[in-house]
Simulated scan of single mutants.
Amino acid sequence: MVKNYMEIVVDNILKKILPDYSNLCKCEKCCDDIKAIALNNLKPIYVVTNAGNLYAKVNELEIQFSTDIVKELVKAIDIVSKNPHHNS
């Protein structure tokens, strides 16, 4: 199976920082937009692995890349909060 580890790490970190943004819409569309914007600004890390290995590696990546990922997520949150694309 080919998987982009960065997608999983971004998803995990976003779940951790979303509660800090009380005025942010957290609907599925807005969260997907935030992830997409952040992922477009982060280097993908494609690996071939089985599911068990995948989750073991995620923890390593979160520690190694968390600062860059949080930075991109904060930028993406700012963009989406000012320009939500969901229906009101």
Rank of each mutant, 00 (worst) to 15 (best):
V2M: 12
V2G: 02
N4R: 07
Y5P: 00
M6E: 09
M6R: 15
V9Y: 06
V9S: 08
V9P: 03
V10L: 03
V10A: 08
N12G: 04
N12Y: 13
I13D: 08
L14G: 06
K15N: 15
K16G: 03
K16M: 04
L18P: 01
P19A: 05
P19K: 00
P19N: 07
P19V: 06
S22Y: 10
S22H: 08
N23T: 10
C25S: 06
C25N: 05
C25V: 02
C27G: 08
C27R: 04
C27P: 07
K29M: 08
K29N: 09
C31D: 06
D32L: 10
D33S: 12
D33N: 09
I34N: 01
A36M: 13
I37H: 10
I37K: 07
L39E: 10
L39A: 03
L39R: 01
N40P: 04
N40R: 11
N41R: 09
N41H: 11
L42F: 11
K43D: 14
P44N: 05
P44M: 08
I45W: 08
Y46N: 14
Y46V: 06
V47T: 12
V47K: 15
V47R: 15
T49C: 14
T49I: 09
N50D: 15
G52N: 12
A56D: 12
A56H: 09
K57S: 12
V58A: 10
V58H: 05
N59H: 08
I63F: 12
I63N: 13
Q64G: 00
F65H: 13
F65K: 08
F65G: 00
S66D: 05
S66W: 03
T67C: 00
T67V: 10
I69C: 07
I69T: 06
E72Q: 14
E72K: 14
V74M: 07
V74Q: 11
A76Y: 01
I77T: 03
D78Y: 09
D78C: 01
V80P: 06
K82V: 02
N83Q: 12
H85I: 11
H85L: 15
H85Q: 15
